[in-house]
Amino acid sequence: MKRWVNKGARTMVRYLSLYRSFLTHNLKNEMIYRANFAIAVVMDIFFMGVNVVFFAILYANVETIGGWNFHQTMVLVGSVGVVREIAYLTFRQGFLELGEYIRTGRFDAMLTAPMAPNAHLAFRHVSLTESLGEGLMGLALVGYGFAHLPEAAWSSIPFYLVMLINSLLIYYAFCLMINSAVFWLVKSQELNTVVYYFIDTARYPREIYRGMGKAFFTFIVPSSLIATTPAAILTGRANGELVILSLGVAAVLLSLGLAVWNWSLQHYSSASS
């Protein structure tokens, strides 16, 4: 038992230090394209702004949507931005480039390096700037909503962060499953539009769904949990049921995602040419 714990800890330390190396390299790389970076931030803020305008127009006509008022919804919309930024800082970009890596043979190099291929893929292009505008704007929206909600409590922030990480695990698992198909199609762009819509639809409250839709957006395309669960905690709307559901979905989906991924990897190494 102790040996296993030790081994686990060592692996963890090794991958954390690998993550640090990759992050430094990527930051150096991004520094070269500083101009792009400024434009990307402006664009992100613009897109988030359109989302805010969208909801502002809706809330000019209605009081609540699925029980969420405007300020609560802003926490929700902001949380999506924060989740996306952290995802780009940890794993997202690699999946977008998987098809290209396979075509250019760079993925083959990942298979021969003494490092888990999925971690290698995730870290290869961790990007601070890709979604930075969204992250900053997201934080601002969360702060804005939080400040206008009398029921929001400071003490809920640690729990909010925990559930944010849980959402990232769900996001990662979904990416793994969708991108397993890249090994057959050798194109990642279109597959990842599905992932894009998945995260894009996370900004609506989970309460809008009914019946089959509710099950679908919980278990198949679990976008209704990604932002709703953390935002519900911060805005004092959460219940134990929702939290347990989110944790459970994350656990199941992650094991399933890894299984599908490894199986596809096996297919790749028996079928690519």
Binding site: R14, S17, L18, S21, F22, H25, K28, A113, P114, M115, H120
Partner: peptide, 11 residues
């Protein structure tokens, strides 16, 4: 830089 990264990957 690439060399340094390989150093870390290969330990």
């Amino acid at each position: 830089e690439s060399f340094a990264l390989n150093r870390d990957i290969y330990g």
